[in-house]
Amino acid sequence: MEVRTIKVFTTVDNINLHTQVVDMSMTYGQQFGPTYLDGADVTKIKPHNSHEGKTFYVLPNDDTLRVEAFEYYHTTDPSFLGRYMSALNHTKKWKYPQVNGLTSIKWADNNCYLATALLTLQQIELKFNPPALQDAYYRARAGEAANFCALILAYCNKTVGELGDVRETMSYLFQHANLDSCKRVLNVVCKTCGQQQTTLKGVEAVMYMGTLSYEQFKKGVQIPCTCGKQATKYLVQQESPFVMMSAPPAQYELKHGTFTCASEYTGNYQCGHYKHITSKETLYCIDGALLTKSSEYKGPITDVFYKENSYTTTIK
């Protein structure tokens, strides 16, 4: 009895394709271990004539594949690729409408935090270190965002349907971005203890939790000093293409032309909904596939993004 075979390709990165001759009487799992086709788990399936010449994702289970996976995804987590594939199996079914010149995501599976993050990423200057993220990001900007969303979920250790947080998501993504040249110098002034300067680099240099107003941050924000008295913390120097200011959701007025974009969060910790506000020729609110415009805006804002380049204080 002759062994019926077909020729397929296996890959971990969709760049390096490895030619395989597979036995049609055995499952993919018996031949390769966990195997995925377009995100779908085909591990328990036997090869079919229609699979001839198709590319299958496999887990990096030998040295060659491990090197290829690390170079593309910059992670050695053995569960990463499987999590990416199972997320992709959902995100490829989502709709990605162009809204006001940006790629958004039609609401499904509690994905409003991903839509808000995706919209924000198209408006701030950011370059990702893992080629996987950078490639998928370019495709997302062009309207094909399924891979990018699935990668975000995998890097953030999230599953489809789980509630997510924009600030946490951005923080994970910033860790995989090139923020080497970003720098922030802060000064804390206390009447009792004097003053202390701190220099922050990388992710810490672009994120701040405690106030939404970048102007206020430049002037000074009140913080408790270690001595128990009130101290003032203010920005001395900022070198970065953008800054992200966050605070627990509270009524906040966004003035046209003073910011790049913002995240609105309605609801409580267990259950809520994100919308995205962007400042173009007027203010726009993007909620999944829905767009509304207004000249002014007041609502429960939790993150505001500002364009920056270089700032030095005039406070002496």
Rank of each mutant, 00 (worst) to 15 (best):
V99T: 08
E264R: 00
V3Q: 11
G220R: 02
P249E: 02
T64L: 10
P248D: 15
G82W: 12
Y28H: 05
P248V: 07
A231K: 06
Y155E: 01
S263D: 02
M207S: 04
G161L: 00
F56H: 05
A132V: 03
S263K: 03
T76H: 09
L212H: 04
V58R: 08
Y311G: 07
S279I: 00
T43V: 05
A146M: 03
K191E: 15
Q216M: 09
F80L: 04
E168D: 03
K307E: 10
L119H: 00
M24V: 13
E296Q: 12
G272S: 08
K229H: 10
A154E: 04
F70Y: 13
L173K: 07
H51C: 03
D287S: 00
S294W: 14
P97C: 11
G101R: 04
Q230T: 14
C149S: 04
M170F: 06
F174A: 06
T313N: 15
T116S: 11
Y137T: 00
N178M: 06
K201F: 15
K158I: 00
R4S: 12
T75P: 04
A140W: 06
K158L: 04
E168L: 15
P78Q: 12
G220L: 03
A262C: 02
I152Q: 02
S279G: 10
K219D: 07
L59A: 12
K316D: 15
K255N: 09
E296D: 15
A140H: 03
A154Q: 01
M26I: 13
L126C: 09
E168Y: 14
A145N: 03
N89W: 12
T198A: 06
L65I: 06
T27Y: 06
K218D: 01
I105W: 00
F259M: 02
G161Y: 04
R4A: 14
V185A: 02
V188L: 08
D41V: 05
Y234M: 09
S181I: 03
Q270D: 15
T282V: 12
Q175M: 07
K46I: 13
Y28G: 03
Y28W: 05
E204H: 11
K275T: 11
T35W: 06
I15P: 05
N268Q: 09
R83F: 03
Y234D: 05
E71T: 11
G82Q: 15
L200M: 09
P47A: 11
T11G: 08
F32G: 08
P47Q: 04
K229A: 14
A136N: 09
L59F: 10
M170V: 05
P131V: 03
K106M: 15
A108K: 06
N157K: 14
I45T: 13
D165V: 03
L118C: 04
T260R: 01
S50C: 12
G220Y: 04
T91I: 00
P249H: 06
P241I: 04
V58N: 04
T10A: 11
Q216Y: 07
A150N: 08
S295I: 10
V21E: 14
C190P: 00
Q30V: 11
I223Q: 07
I301F: 00
I315Y: 15
I15A: 12
Q123N: 10
Q230S: 12
H273M: 02
F9M: 13
H90P: 04
C193A: 00
S213W: 02
I105N: 04
K183C: 06
N89V: 13
D13S: 08
L179M: 06
Y137P: 01
K316E: 15
T199I: 11
D13K: 09
Y234P: 02
L186W: 10
T103Q: 00
Y208T: 06
M85W: 08
L88N: 03
A247W: 00
Q251A: 09
P97A: 13
E71V: 08
E2T: 11
T312Q: 14
R66D: 08
T198K: 13
Y214D: 04
S310A: 11
T302Q: 05
C227G: 01
P78I: 08
V166S: 02
A177I: 06
Y252I: 11
K92Y: 09
K201R: 15
T198M: 12
N89M: 15
G29Q: 09
I6R: 05
P34M: 15
T266I: 09
N61W: 12
G299E: 06
N49E: 12
S246P: 00
G299P: 10
Y265N: 01
T292M: 09
H276G: 00
K44G: 13
Y172L: 12
A40N: 14
A247D: 00
S246M: 02
G288K: 00
T302P: 01
Y113R: 05
I277H: 04
T35K: 07
K293Q: 14
V189N: 10
L291M: 13
V42D: 06
Q123E: 11
M26A: 08
Y155D: 04
G257E: 07
Q98G: 06
I152C: 09
P249S: 01
Y172Q: 11
Y234W: 05
H276A: 03
E253V: 11
K7W: 10
T10V: 13
C225M: 01
L151V: 02
L179H: 03
L283M: 09
T10L: 15
I301C: 00
E125T: 10
T64P: 09
Q197N: 08
T258M: 10
Q123Y: 05
F9N: 11
G202N: 04
L291R: 09
G210D: 03
T211H: 09
L121Q: 08
F70K: 09
Y113A: 05
